[in-house]
Design a protein around this nucleic acid. Sequence first.
DNA 1: TCTGGGGTCCTAGGACCC
DNA 2: TCTGGGGTCCTAGGACCC
Length: 386
Amino acid sequence: MNAPRRWIAHLDMDAFYASVELLRYPELKGQPVVIGGGRRHQPELLPDGTRRFARLAGYAGRGVVTTATYAARDHGVHSGMGLMKAAVRAPEAVLLPTDFEQYRLYSRRFKAAVAELAPVIEDRGIDEIYIDLTDVPGAQEPLGHDPHGGVRALALEIKNNVRSATGLTCSIGVTPNKLLSKIASELDKPDGLALLTEADIATRIWPLPVRSINGIGPKAGARLMALGWKTIGDVAAQPRALLLEHFGRSYGAWLHEASHGRDDRLVVTHSEPVSMSRETTFERDLHAKRDRAELTTIFTRLAEQVAGDLQRKGYVGRTIGIKLRFDDFKTVTRDMTVETPTADASAIRLAAGLCLKRVDLSRRLRLLGVRVGTLQRAALLSSAPP
DNA sequence: TCTGGGGTCCTAGGACCC
DNA sequence: TCTGGGGTCCTAGGACCC
């Protein structure tokens, strides 16, 4: 009997936050809508029952675009962009505040809808997952003239189940591995389904820009570009030794494998958190001396928030650290390891305060964060033996 | 018009230990 | 003085992702 062909799906919700907002405000369908910024732009319910929405025009502040509808993307607005810049490109776009609770609700719903059909799921955040379809009944069967018809039908069924459970569309890539599926889910977006095998790598993957690979970010992308290697195929055409020479043993070898579409990572259905943190960017830059009272209040609140997160989720941690960002955007971190793992707000605040003393605070600050790492489950922490 | 917040993983040097 | 070799922990920074 033949070994089953490995089928991994990557499912990505289409413009997730924006699409959830459109369910709530269907009158915005087709309009440019941007999600992001603070809480000061809630829609206003007018006496005649209609709503008045905030527009992007005139936005002042440090927010960024979290998600934009496809109509807003047509104006050159995309996630990560500063809202001030987005306002120049699409002043008429509707601006909505982020409502993470609502998105988490829909996240649970779409994941449950997938799990009904295919239970081996790896969480990759609020709006995407990997699914191992290999052992799902029917996935190995042909259908009519289509040798991979079974797995294609399964992917369509998953899309339909997600849509009926949430009213939302998603895009799915189905391929032999996570790396290729992640790329494939983008190929047909929105509401897409792309099924690829090794035989399609040369025609469908190699023409894509290097940045399409998950793991090649702005820095590596620029370095590859400087070498004249623009597409994945360009990288795949380089001798392995040359990649090792330019990018080191580890990353170079990975680049070689990835460009050939090879990846044997498993779908991981459970993972434990490594760290938890809270951070905040101030509305204006603060100075350690002149704004001391305000900073102290924020610092303590961050410690309390992390402590609350840890306690709610049942974790304690030994590494307590801070993160500072200065007005020149330079970022520094300091951390220390404490003897007893803790989730206690005052213990965290105390250690974080010691970390802060190790930093030169002559520049003004734009961000402050508190982090607890080296986590373990609080329940596993037995009381000290006699 | 400067660039959010929450994460993971990797690297690298020094301390410390055997 | 003339100094191995590993292993692990701690700390800082950086790349990358959603």
